[in-house]
Amino acid sequence: MRFLLPLLLITQLAVAQGGLGITGHNHVALHVKDIPTSAAFFRDVMGLTPIPVPDNLKTTRAWFDMKNGQMIHLLSGRTSQINHDKNGSHLALFVADIAKSEAFLSAKNIPFHKQVRFDGVTQIYFSDPDGYLWELNEKK
């Protein structure tokens, strides 16, 4: 996870400057403690559509569609604690309606932190079952 944000920055620079010839983002892989628990969270809370995993990987992987050819891959076997805060490593996603997202998290009793960014955009931060921190905000 600590390499994810620099990788995303490198991707943005490479696209802007021609660099490696990167044309987009394919997937983010997250190391998780328990595949069924994390898969249920990404399906039921995040609202992502599961993607079929090859039979030989079903016990150690779960894949989810984020649209536009982007995915999240869950990989089993994490044993160390994930420690993130809203000012550190996190993954940020756009939502259609931040108020509806806030209401949904509240209804599910999922703790979150809400703040308004310097440019007036509302941000909501919450953790998944493994402690990875997610940010939600609306496109301006």
Rank of each mutant, 00 (worst) to 15 (best):
D65Y: 04
M66N: 06
H84V: 07
F104Y: 12
E102S: 07
D119V: 13
K108M: 08
H90V: 02
K58Y: 03
Q17D: 11
S80T: 15
T37W: 05
M46R: 01
A29Y: 04
N137L: 12
F112R: 03
G131A: 10
G120T: 11
D65A: 07
S89Y: 09
P54M: 06
D97P: 05
L30Q: 00
V28W: 00
R117S: 14
L93R: 09
D65H: 07
W63E: 02
F118L: 09
L75A: 09
F118V: 10
S106H: 14
H73K: 04
F112D: 00
W134Q: 01
Q70T: 14
G69R: 06
V15P: 01
E135H: 03
I35M: 03
A99W: 07
W63Y: 12
L57E: 14
P36K: 06
I72T: 07
G47I: 07
D34E: 12
P6L: 09
A29Q: 10
N68L: 12
A107F: 04
A14W: 03
N87S: 13
H113C: 10
F104R: 08
P52H: 07
E138M: 13
R78H: 11
R2A: 14
G131R: 03
V116C: 06
F118T: 11
G24L: 10
L105Y: 03
M46A: 06
I82C: 07
I22V: 15
G19W: 05
S127Q: 15
Q123P: 03
P54Q: 07
W63R: 02
N109I: 03
A16V: 03
L133M: 12
P50G: 04
G24R: 11
V121T: 15
L48E: 03
V32L: 00
L13A: 13
M71K: 10
A92M: 14
